[in-house]
């Protein structure tokens, strides 16, 4: 019997597994009909999941760990049986900052994080960085990247990704770390220049996960299993370069992710245009949706995130790591995917 399941997502390239599973029949194969609810921001998505308007959601991996540490609103415990995407972020700077870096002789090679950090430090002034959410991989990546530089060189501010270009153009921000397609959008509309892919800071950062309310999976084991398998297969399909063009067309259908299909295709293929003269850099593994074995959520990933949140918010590290341990549930992944994994 086909069952309906309500899922929440925020319109970004990495919502692709949900949209593809719905549109190309991966959900149907599992006897599921996905009812996709688009959220305008992360707080709204979180409220929808907390209040039960959706059963599961594509969520920032860091939000789940932050919740376990008592940071942020809401008190329902969240957990994940599946990582949906790795990487996919870009770091960029305003055209004014880019000119400064040019004068210092920075080559904009879009690969060497240490070299770029040194160049930014040599500017000798603090930069205001836009990030999509306080508890996000973007904020943690910036923290790691700037580590070793003089304290106080980066000031992080929350700006909604679609508003990042105008905040940059109007001088509210000097730089940003954001998920595609919004970095590329800033290049086109605000003359931003991209400095680094997220993968140059951390090669496989768990960016989005499938978030569930704790206990839901035990109560609805059959349904969770079908959902995890459907999304995992959609991710494997997305990981094949030959499918990028089709994927981009499906993901950008009206009502889903409203940007040009070409932007999404570039992100899927790691062919990133880094300035308004059209310079293209090819980044292997820029954004990863599969194969499935890479998408297993591990306690080590949760611990990595917890340690960084503890550092940023002044919490005891050991306590934070143990509080986060049960959030990334490898046991659920193994239960639902191991027996059928090729």
């Amino acid at each position: 019997m086909t069952r309906d399941i309500a899922l929440g997502y925020v319109p970004l390239v990495d919502a692709a597994p949900l949209i593809i599973a719905d549109a190309l029949g991966f959900a149907e194969e599992q006897g599921l009909r996905l009812v996709l609810h688009r959220a305008a921001n992360w707080s709204m998505l979180r409220d929808m999941l907390d209040q039960g308007q959706v059963a599961a959601a594509q969520m920032l991996s860091v939000m789940l760990v932050a919740r376990a540490l008592g940071l942020g609103g809401g008190d329902v415990r969240l957990e994940t049986p599946l990582v949906l995407s790795l990487g996919g972020q870009v770091v960029g700077v305003s055209s004014a900052v880019a000119d400064g870096l040019d004068q210092l002789g920075h080559g904009f090679g879009f690969c060497d994080a240490a070299d770029a950090a040194q160049a930014v430090a040599a500017l000798g002034r603090p930069l205001r960085f836009g990030v999509p959410f306080a508890h996000s991989m973007h904020a943690l990546l910036l923290g790691d990247w700037m580590k070793g530089l003089t304290e106080g060189l980066a000031d992080l501010r929350t700006v909604a990704p679609p508003l990042m270009p105008e905040a940059l153009a109007e001088g509210e921000l000097d730089a940003f770390c954001v998920g595609e397609p919004w970095g590329s959008q800033a290049v086109v509309t605000a003359r931003a220049r991209l400095l680094l892919p997220g993968t140059s800071i951390h090669p496989a950062s768990p960016e989005k996960v499938l978030a569930l309310r704790a206990g839901w999976c035990e109560a609805e084991a059959d349904l969770t299993g079908r959902l995890v398998r459907a999304l995992s297969r959609a991710g494997e399909w997305l990981a094949l370069p030959g499918n990028a063009t089709t994927a981009a067309e499906v993901v950008t259908r009206p009502g889903r992710v409203d940007v040009a299909a070409e932007r999404v295709e570039r992100s899927l293929l790691g062919r990133i245009v880094t300035d308004d003269r059209g310079t293209e850099h090819v980044v292997a593994g820029f954004q990863t949706f599969g194969p499935s074995r890479l998408m297993r959520p591990t306690p080590e990933q949760a611990g990595w995130i917890a340690a960084r949140l503890a550092f940023r918010f002044g919490l005891p590290r050991g306590w934070a790591e143990s509080a986060a341990a049960g959030v990334f549930r490898a046991d659920l992944y193994d239960r639902f995917l191991r027996p059928v994994a090729a």
Binding site: A39, A40, N41, W42, S43, M44, D47, L69, G70, L71, G72, G73, G74, D75, P132, F133, A134, R157, T158, V159, A160, P162, L163, F313, G314, L315
Partner: peptide
């Protein structure tokens, strides 16, 4: 408006500090 594009900014203001002390003194009403 829960769908306001800048709602996450308010969220950050409400929780910019440690969970134990709230000098900013705004929080999501629950």
């Amino acid at each position: 408006d829960i769908a306001h594009p800048s709602r996450d900014v308010l969220e950050e203001l409400a929780q910019a500090t440690r969970p134990m002390d709230r000098p900013v003194a705004m929080f999501v009403d629950r």
